[in-house]
Nucleic acid binder design. Structure first.
Length: 415
RNA sequence: GCGGGUGUAGCUCAGUGGUAGAGCAGCGGUUUGUGGUUCCGCUGGCCGCGGGUUCAAUCCCCGUCACUCGCCCCA
């Protein structure tokens, strides 16, 4: 028996890193006034088909979709934004000109070949700012993402940013790309040839050397920008400058989901290998309309939590987990062990201490060793002699100092 | 979906066509009520799984599964 390919058990020994990331998520989002939205992990398949785009790999070949017992087509969510928008429309989160600031964190599913930083069940944290169209919204999202990475201590990273302008301009741009690449069809990689009609933007992103060379001389989106798109992008960049957030404008940055427009961005890290994106996002001004909602310009990002952990581990920036505070030791007699159980219980309930107790009937020495191994601060020994005298020995393991206390004094001693 | 690598004790890894070792970890002991250092001992492995070749396979061949590197894709 083993876990499903591409899925992982997160074990007690590694949970501390996850808790660290989760603590930072709660902290940073609260600084910006974002509140958590918890969506189901299943949606009707149509939610993703409509939002993400039929031609994308995600929808085309990576979704876990299945008919449920009633015959409806259900999909395990491969990404969050579609579901967030569905939910925002359903519950009118942006009614009456209101904006909504939400975040989410949880599991997502894509049927892909597992690799470092790529699993079939993975976890994302993301934020969405719904209902605001200006560059101020973009910078809020960008700054939040930046602050989050800073707070995790992830140093080796870059922010790449680009604009995809409006759907109309992107359509024109696609046509230009198609005609440009068509005239160099034979020089294009096989993959890119097959994508030429369906998703020519992706060719710009190709890692194939031949494609790269061609892309360098391809038509540029910047040359086709309308005044509004250009102005929006420039304002975003100048706000990044104002906040001293470093970035690189990358005209070749395209994102794989159809719904983006205007600002798109990606955080990469050299600590990750081939799957080098820590996370990314962008503006999606027309997604609500796709669902039959009213026009609600929005922007958001998502980070891969496994990748954040990978980057943190690579530079050892995960802080030490804290150890239990006490170990109460008894041995040899039933009275001693009984006293230990009562004492430990009292320390937990009355003093709020983290207390470990031996449950294997082991020797004093074995318990001392375990206490040391666990990094325990104080050991309390209640042996047969102490039981007779109604006292105990308190030993500070780091200094080696020990004192005799009456049992009744313990609560007061540890506050 | 495509190409390469790997798969031996809890962990990191050696190894040989004749059914296996090290280090670390774990447990116990070092004269009987006290941890971290020594020293000693012990536990622990269908050598990923299935099939084939062979008198004999952990080692060779095929398949399969998993992980891993890259492509693809993306978080």
């Amino acid at each position: 028996m083993q876990s499903i390919r591409g899925t992982k058990d997160i074990l007690p020994g590694e949970i501390h890193g996850w808790h660290t990331v989760e603590d930072r998520i709660r902290h940073i989002t609260s600084l910006y006034g974002y509140r958590e939205l918890r969506n189901p992990i299943m949606e009707y398949t149509d939610v993703f088909k409509r939002a993400v785009g039929e031609d994308t790999d995600i929808v085309g070949k990576e979704m876990y979709s299945f008919p449920d017992r009633g015959g409806d087509s259900i999909t395990l969510r491969p990404e969050a934004t579609a579901a967030v928008v569905r939910s925002a429309i359903q519950h009118n989160l942006t009614a009456q000109q209101q904006i909504a600031r939400v975040y989410y964190a949880g599991p997502f599913f894509r049927y892909e070949r597992p690799q470092k930083g790529r699993q079939r069940q993975f976890h994302q944290f993301g934020c969405e700012l719904l209902g605001a169209s200006g560059p101020e919204a973009d910078i809020e999202i960008l700054a939040l993402a930046h602050d989050f990475l800073e707070s995790l201590g992830i140093k080796s990273r870059e922010l790449h940013i680009n604009t995809l302008a409006t759907p109309e301009i992107r359509q024109q741009f696609k046509q230009e790309l198609i005609s440009y690449f068509s005239s160099h069809l034979s020089e294009l990689s096989e993959d890119s040839q097959s994508r030429l009609q369906s998703n020519p933007l992706r060719i710009l992103d190709s890692k194939n050397p031949g494609d790269k060379a061609l892309s360098a001389n391809a038509p540029k989106m910047q040359d086709m920008l309308d005044a509004e798109s250009k102005d929006h992008f420039e304002k975003v960049l100048s706000l990044l400058n104002a906040l001293s957030i470093p970035y690189t404008v990358n005209p070749l940055l395209v994102r794989g989901l159809d719904y983006y427009s205007h600002t798109v961005f990606e955080f990469t890290s050299t600590a990750l290998g081939a799957q080098d994106a820590l996370g990314g996002g962008g503006r999606y001004d027309h997604l609500f309309e796709h669902f039959g909602g009213k026009h609600t310009p929005s922007i958001g990002f998502a980070f891969g939590m496994e990748r954040l952990l990978l980057a943190m581990n690579a530079q050892e920036s995960i802080p030490e987990a804290s150890n239990p505070e006490m170990y109460v030791i008894g041995f040899e007699s039933d009275e001693s062990r009984k006293a230990v159980i009562s004492c430990a219980h009292a320390l937990r309930i009355r003093s709020g201490k983290q207390v470990i107790v031996d449950v294997q009937n082991r020797s004093l020495k074995a318990q001392m060793k375990e206490a040391d191994k666990l990094g325990i601060g104080h050991v309390i020994i209640i042996g047969p002699d102490e039981v007779l005298n109604n006292n105990c020995i308190v030993k500070d393991l780091s200094s080696g100092m020990q004192y005799t206390k009456s049992i009744d004094e313990l609560d007061a001693f540890f506050g």
